[in-house]
């Protein structure tokens, strides 16, 4: 029974996909398969998706754009979810994947059923899918380049890493340390894993801090800067230059310091609105446009002079965000 159903769905989807490439996507259905919702970044990502796609549906650009989130951030669960989405006859599936490799099988199934698969943030390696990736190494490098310009005399640097064993953590850290090697006046005197969470970062930094010499700067991965600041304050140490990660609490803290004593730093992360970029890319592909399989999203950087504007646009507890329009997506696809 299930097999017949699957066969039918595949046949129907294949027919749909094989149809002439028209400029009309108003009958097409797009699904979002998301593996995790338990932090502020993911919440903002889902909210952006909701806002942009609801309008797209109301404007008759697509027929549906439904978000689905798995509860336990597990590969098996997400694989089952994508299988359901295939059966439900979506024309495109936008994925934030729990694993770059483990979903390849089910992604291939979707492709074989004629479904467009666009992965972003957590990308999948299956060649038939599109990938909207972030150049995390460049993000790490940009932090050190900023430090090199800001404090040419150099000094001791503390590195706060993300979740151990995750690809993103390795990439950002590699970018940071490769660039640090270019500036011998900086010394990486310690690193801790803050797991992108303020509480964990605070705990880990407070633990290692007593054993460290004076710290001039803290390089981070986002979601950990505020916790680091709290740990330095609690230890009664002078506040170093802490790179922030676009979270509202981090920006708020930065603003308070800036007003108090002219504190200067920068903040960099990926905008959660990248989900909307993925949506438009999926829509463009459904529309028959030529889109390269590998795209790179620009990261969102906030500097001393753009702090106030970004803080005003970021809701309490959220993440500084940019939502993409169809035109923005076209620009990213065209390589700007």
């Amino acid at each position: 029974m299930l097999k017949t159903l699957l066969a039918c769905t595949i046949a129907v989807s294949a027919l749909l996909a094989a149809g002439p490439a028209s400029a009309e996507t108003k009958d097409k259905k797009i699904a979002l398969s998301n593996n995790y919702a338990g932090n502020s970044w993911r919440q903002a990502m889902l909210k952006s998706w909701d806002k942009v796609t609801k309008k797209a549906v109301a404007d008759g650009i697509v027929a549906a754009a439904d978000p689905f989130t798995t509860s336990e951030n597990q590969v098996t669960e997400q694989a089952a979810q994508i299988q359901n989405l295939i059966l439900q006859g979506y024309n495109a599936i936008v994925i934030n994947a729990a694993s770059p490799d483990a979903l390849n099988g089910v992604v291939k199934q979707a492709c074989d059923a004629g479904i467009i698969v666009v992965s972003f943030d957590g990308i999948v390696k299956e060649p038939c899918a599109w990938r909207i990736a972030v150049d995390f190494q460049a993000m790490g490098a940009s932090e050190v380049e900023y430090l090199a310009k800001k404090m040419p005399e150099g000094g001791n640097v503390l590195e706060i890493r993300g979740l151990a064993g995750v690809f993103v953590d390795d990439e950002i850290s590699k970018g940071i340390n490769d660039t640090l090697a270019k500036y011998p006046q900086f010394k990486n005197v310690g690193n801790v894993h803050g797991n992108w969470a303020q509480e964990v970062a605070q705990k880990e930094v407070a633990g290692i801090l007593p054993s460290l010499p004076e710290i001039k700067a803290v390089v981070t991965q986002g979601g950990d800067g505020y916790g680091a600041a709290q740990a330095f304050a609690a230890a009664g140490r002078p506040t170093p230059l802490i790179i922030m990660g676009n979270r509202q609490d981090e920006l708020q803290w930065w603003k308070e310091q800036k007003d108090k004593n002219g504190y200067e730093t920068m903040s960099v992360s990926i905008a959660p609105g990248v989900s909307t970029l993925a949506f438009w890319v999926a829509q463009m592909i459904l529309d028959g446009k030529e889109v390269p399989k590998d795209l790179t999203v620009p990261f969102l950087r906030i500097d001393q002079d753009t702090l106030e504007a970004n803080l005003a646009n970021t809701e309490k507890g959220g993440v500084a965000n940019v939502e993409y329009t169809a035109e923005d997506a076209a620009k990213v696809v065209a390589g700007k």
């Binding site: 338990g38 932090n39 502020s40 919440q43 969470a197 303020q198 509480e199 605070q202 505020y226 916790g227 709290q230 609490d249």
Partner: peptide
């Protein structure tokens, strides 16, 4: 830790 977070 200066507020509640979803992953605290």
């Amino acid at each position: 830790s200066g507020g509640a977070a979803l992953n605290m």
